[in-house]
Write a protein that binds this DNA or RNA. Structure first.
Lengths: 101, 101
DNA sequence: TTTTCTTATCGTAAAATTACGATGAACGAT
DNA sequence: ATCGTTCATCGTAATTTTACGATAAGAAAA
């Protein structure tokens, strides 16, 4: 990209909302989150069984959701249990809520 | 991408939500929508004045928001007046609402 | 008809995204 | 110490996104 301009500074809420939205901007990730909501938690392997995607692809989506703060992983050797990050979930919820009025 | 697998079919709601989320997944577009909400409507040129971005860039963001159905353009020659698409806005709102519980 | 104003679209380039298979790291079990 | 299981990360490739300037399209005005 021709990026002559330095990064534009938006309000904190705007950036935060965009970040959450971006993480939600893929059907696989929505589906993963819905699955997590219904199960409350689950392992990577469970998702690999549910979705017709490579293990590495699932892992990549999980990473993005984790980076966005929507989920968190708990070590349960040799597995990792993923759950919704309820704290940030609430933040995201209220950001979307107030955005849509 | 190595796309050996055909496109995965998700539930309609999942696809719809991801589409809305993706459109919201950029701070500039969030800011544009917030601006539209406060003003109810505005012209492309107004936005070019507000944001330090090229006219073509603004136009591109508007196109994405329009493609996602979040805004609509009304011909007001020689300008185009953009407004929130209230019908789809409501749909998006309820999709996010039910997603977050 | 030509000019002017506004906005969209085109062409381009850099970066990010999304997918895959292969490999590596962490841990328990053998 | 080695093996097996689980998951993350690496390397790669195609596609999409995001930005820019330049150009085209549309309608009113001169």
């Amino acid at each position: 990209m021709k990026r002559s301009l330095e990064h534009i500074e938006y309000k904190e809420d705007t950036e935060a909302l965009a970040k959450f939205a971006k993480a939600l901007g893929h059907p696989t990730r929505i589906a993963i989150l819905k699955h997590l909501e219904s199960q409350s938690c689950c392992f990577t392997g469970d998702l690999v069984d549910v979705f017709p995607l490579a293990q590495s692809t699932i892992s990549q989506h999980l990473k993005e959701l984790k980076n966005a703060g929507l989920i968190q992983g708990e070590l349960k050797p040799p597995k990792i249990k993923y759950c919704i990050n309820k704290e940030n979930w609430k933040i995201a919820k209220s950001l979307f809520q107030q955005f849509f009025d």
